[in-house]
Design a protein around this nucleic acid. Structure first.
Lengths: 114, 114
DNA sequence: CGTTTTTGCTACGATTTCAGTAGCAACAAC
DNA sequence: GTTGTTGCTACTGAAATCGTAGCAAAAACG
């Protein structure tokens, strides 16, 4: 049985603050959950095991990590490969590409904050 | 006295899961807080008053909205203009630009999820 | 084989964050 | 002066997250 966690936001489904379920709103809900951006970021390179990913994220609790991974798998952004670990799907990798310029921006931002 | 909310992540300061305070980590912490992405999104157009912004976000609680706005102002991403309301700073607008492709991505994503 | 590690997770109580409603001070309009 | 709007603060209960412990399965080791 595939178990879609009832908490995973999906396009067309009502999400936090948006009854319409417009894809971009759903995405913002999904990405706005704690650790999600960080998890995607840490998966930018090679696949990571559950524990490696947990460590990369500074030791977040396994319950939360597992919850986030379930949502991301359910959303076809992350997948789990046997004997390799967790990795981004092609789609997930595209998403991360969109987010890549954030590094450059954050450097400038840091300077402006002194 | 300027009151930097002790919870506002800042480059160089330790953030959730990252003792280094690398700018991009700090940014991910900031953006990963609930409602932040949505708030930036809703401010993409004209300035909005507190209540208008609250309504645009589907009626999130004023306490959370106020907390997020304080963090974003503190981070020089959002500013409050007298008689106009809240708006993105130049910097904040740049950040949003980096995020803009998310709309297109989310459309494709929605289709792939059926 | 038996033992030790590693891995992927689940359980659970403590803490933090968020939701939801109420309401207040300041200002403006009527 | 009363009604309305705005920007918020306060408060309580619900939900999300933290932090630690631990367990079953698989791998590595001897």
């Amino acid at each position: 049985m595939t178990k879609p966690p009832k908490t995973t936001p999906r396009p067309g489904r009502r999400v936090r603050g948006s009854a319409t379920g417009r894809p971009v709103m759903v995405l913002l809900d999904l990405l706005g959950r704690r650790w999600v951006l960080r998890i995607l970021w840490e998966l930018r390179g090679a696949p990571l095991t559950f524990r490696a990913l947990q460590a990369a994220c500074g030791g977040l609790s396994p319950s939360v990590l597992n919850a986030r991974l379930a949502e991301l798998r359910d959303s076809l952004i992350v997948e789990q490969r046997p004997d390799e670990g967790y990795t981004l799907t092609r789609q997930g990798r595209e998403l991360l590409t969109q987010l890549a310029p954030l590094t450059a921006w954050s450097e400038k931002w840091a300077k402006s904050l002194g």
